[in-house]
């Protein structure tokens, strides 16, 4: 394996790599036109938005051990919050996305309060059930287009200094939010709260015995993740300029879960890596064959048997090791 050797030999390079990636991502829209890659600015923007949602899922799943199979539900709540606010006449992006964040968090608080009483597979299934309820609700909501979806064709305003209609500006805003969310979750994961959460993941009974308010700690994490997923949903709504119930379907929740596990559960770089690889492969495979599902299936099996800790584990043998699937 070349990476661990590289990592041990050049620890400085590894530490600086994130900044390099961030810098590359930041200048990408400026370079894209000369390289003829305008389309990929939008593509990377989508990867970043999905990575925000995946990072929040990685937080509760990888560090908190809460295997939620309904995360797309919160994404949908965020997206439909933007739709509802736009329908009500709101034109400020910050207000709309802020609303997405708040309602994503509220939905997570309600769902979490009920769901977190269950464990393991029951938790997987009850979160799925709630997401399905939201899905069917959205399908039958005539005001917001139901199954036909709802178009958001007027770009939202981002205040006097930012041109909300400019795709590159939106890209940088998404990049800044993604970097912020990423840094925040990385930091929280290593805070006292993060350690408590990991303690609960590894041995809940012990944490209860030690006097930790386990339920409240878990709920706090769940709400934070729901809020961030809601925010991602709001961004996704603006990115797609379109919202439909399809984004809440259980397969979307499953895909998000798959991307996180693929990248590496509880690994700092797991979520963005998994999302980037999955979406890139999907994009590339679809272009070349009608049968584009099975190679992805084979990839999943390969990961399960040859890289069980996910891709991030291959890259970061040192550093963030506390995580990982049990």
């Amino acid at each position: 394996m070349a990476q661990p050797a590289f990592a041990t030999r050049f620890p400085g390079a590894v530490r600086r790599l994130p900044w390099l990636v961030l810098a590359l991502l930041a200048v990408f829209p400026l370079l894209a036109p000369t390289l003829g890659l305008e389309y990929y600015v939008g593509f990377v923007r989508r990867v970043l938005i999905v990575a925000i949602a995946a990072t929040s899922l990685n937080f509760i799943l990888g560090y908190g051990g809460m295997a939620a199979l309904g995360h797309a539900g919160f994404i949908g709540v965020g997206a439909y919050t933007v739709v509802a606010l736009v329908e009500a006449g709101v034109s400020s992006a910050w207000l709309a996305w802020g609303g997405a964040l708040v309602f994503g968090g509220l939905a997570a608080a309600l769902i979490g309060a009920v769901s977190l009483r269950t464990r393991g597979v029951y938790f997987i299934m009850i979160t799925l059930a709630f997401a399905q309820m939201l899905y069917y609700l959205a399908v039958s909501l005539r005001t917001y287009g139901g199954d036909d979806g709802y178009g958001l064709y007027t770009p939202l305003a981002m205040g006097p200094w930012l041109d909300g209609a400019h795709p590159d500006v939106f890209y940088w805003v998404v990049l800044a939010i993604a970097a912020g969310v990423f840094a925040l979750f990385s930091r929280v994961a290593h805070s006292r709260y993060g350690h408590a959460l990991r303690g609960i993941r590894d041995n809940e009974t012990r944490m209860v015995a030690l006097g930790y308010p386990v339920f409240r700690l878990k709920l706090a994490g769940f709400v934070a993740a729901g809020a961030v997923a809601g925010l991602a949903g709001g961004l996704l709504a603006s990115h797609n300029t379109f919202v439909s119930p399809g984004m809440m379907h259980w397969t979307q929740s499953a895909l998000l879960l798959v991307m996180v596990i693929l990248g590496g559960l509880g690994r700092r770089w797991g979520a963005p890596l998994g999302v980037a690889l999955w979406l890139t492969l999907e994009e590339a495979l679809k272009m070349h064959t009608d049968y584009w599902h099975w190679p992805l299936g084979v990839l999943l099996l390969l990961v399960v048997f040859h890289a069980p800790q996910g891709l991030a584990a291959l890259l970061e043998r040192r550093g963030d090791r506390q995580g990982g699937a049990a």
Binding site: I124, I261, H293, W294, L296, G297, L300, L301, V304, A325
Partner: peptide, 20 residues
Amino acid sequence: RDHLVQVLATFGIILIADDA
């Protein structure tokens, strides 16, 4: 293995089975 790993692998099987 972990439940989630099982989800990952059997989801992979679904993708392969549908194409097959």
